[in-house]
């Protein structure tokens, strides 16, 4: 029982300092894999800091085949429009790195 006040204090600290903020900052599903290739200096180009609309449009064009690709056509098909938009918003919100 001795633990309870300390535990509650920590919980409050987590929620206040990191909890809510970190939850909002979590990358949407799939986004963390993108930076395996799309990093600064890569031939594939970085995504961080790119406009949301540009990323949404690129993923949609890869999905339909309208934009030629070596393999992004295969990867883009793993994400629907809403999922793609969440990824685009996430990268647009990141400063260029």
């Amino acid at each position: 029982m001795r633990a309870a006040p300390a535990a509650l204090a920590l919980l409050a600290a987590l929620v206040g300092a990191a909890g809510a903020g970190a939850a909002e900052m979590r990358a949407p599903p799939g986004a963390s894999s993108c930076t395996g290739c799309h990093a600064r200096g890569a031939a594939m180009g970085a995504l961080a800091g790119r406009p949301e609309a540009e990323i949404v449009a690129a993923l949609a064009a890869f999905r339909t085949g309208a934009r030629p690709a070596t393999l992004m056509n295969r990867i883009a098909k793993g994400f629907d429009a809403a999922e793609s938009r969440a990824i685009a918003i996430w990268f647009a919100s990141q400063g260029a790195r």
Binding site: L11, L14, A18, G19, A22, A23, R26, A27, P29, G30, S32, S33, C34, G36, C37, L71, I75, G78, F79, E83
Partner: peptide
């Protein structure tokens, strides 16, 4: 990356998200 985020979430008492992963 997914595992580290899940660990951060679990340590903070948050439910980890349902992830999506890519391999090439």
């Amino acid at each position: 990356k997914v595992c580290a985020q899940a660990v951060i979430d679990l340590l903070a008492g948050r439910e980890p998200e349902n992830p999506r992963l890519i391999n090439t």
